[in-house]
């Protein structure tokens, strides 16, 4: 039963890591980070050196985790909003366009296996990009002392956000035959999920506010950044992934009934 899933996951992972697209994206990412990270690092060390004179500066900014790594995370998040759609846009739409979908749908695999296989492959690619950004932070370990678990948990949080993007973007890819259409939809969806939380600021009712606070990606991510792994955050992120993977599976299944 698991074999169909593994076969598809393996094929799509291979497609990611054998295609130039992933390497171009990874190269451009590391180019941007290589430009920004040393500048941030220099600024931070400057601030730390002159700690005495920085009376007005918030205490947090003098902690390398907030002063440097958090910025790295926010750049990475910004990049993931655009990169994950670029990586996942072809996952299903290309199969439809190149008629290889016919092969998948006439093979003894269920649509759940197809979609989960593709989702896991996309996680692999997202992990690769997050790893690149992580290496910059890890590298400062050679000359700075900081709390490693804190850094790891923060990156885990961002990886999970990337996984949420992957699930949403996989769903977008299932909706259309055009990779470009899927990319545009996915970017919009990725951006819009950050704005759901805004509802908390305008709603009067207490329950509604609590609801918006709970569905805000921002709130859950900041918990990870502070180094806490909350069950509620894990459950929330997992349910968003589950929802979109399920929707993608429904779209794939619906192809049979047209």
């Amino acid at each position: 039963m698991l074999r169909g899933f593994f076969t598809i996951a393996k094929k799509d992972l291979r497609a990611f890591f054998f295609s130039p697209v992933f390497y171009i994206v990874a190269f451009l990412c590391s180019m941007m980070l290589s430009w920004v990270f040393p500048i941030q690092l220099a600024q931070f060390s400057e601030a730390a050196k002159n700690m005495m004179f920085q009376q007005g500066m918030p205490q947090q900014q003098l902690n390398i985790h907030y002063g440097l790594f958090l910025r790295q995370l926010s750049y990475l998040n910004l990049m993931l909003i655009l990169i994950v759609p670029a990586l996942t846009m072809r996952l299903i739409s290309e199969e439809k366009k190149m008629h290889t979908f016919d092969l998948l749908l006439t093979s003894p695999v269920t649509s759940v296996q197809i979609v989960l296989g593709k989702f896991v492959a996309a996680l692999g690619a997202v992990f690769g990009i997050v790893l690149i950004a992580y290496l910059y932070c890890a590298w400062t370990g050679f000359f700075a002392h900081f709390s490693w678990p804190l850094l790891n948990v923060a990156f885990l949080g961002l990886f999970l956000v990337g996984a949420v993007y992957a699930a949403m973007d996989l769903f977008c890819s299932a909706l259309t035959e055009s990779a470009l259409g899927s990319f545009v939809m996915a970017v919009i969806l990725n951006i819009s999920i950050w704005f759901v939380g805004i509802g908390a600021e305008v709603s009067d009712s207490q329950t509604l506010r609590e609801f918006f606070e709970h569905v805000s990606l921002n709130g859950h991510l900041s918990a990870f950044v502070e180094g806490t792994v909350r069950t509620s955050a894990l459950v929330f992120l997992a349910s968003v992934m589950g929802l979109f993977v399920f929707l993608a599976e429904r779209v794939v299944e619906a192809n049979r009934w047209r």
């Binding site: 094929k11 295609s19 190149m98 008629h99 290889t100 979908f101 016919d102 006439t106």
Partner: peptide, 11 residues
């Protein structure tokens, strides 16, 4: 099954 268009992956 061989569909109308051969379902092959170019890569």
């Amino acid at each position: 099954y061989l569909p109308e268009h051969p379902p092959v992956y170019g890569d």
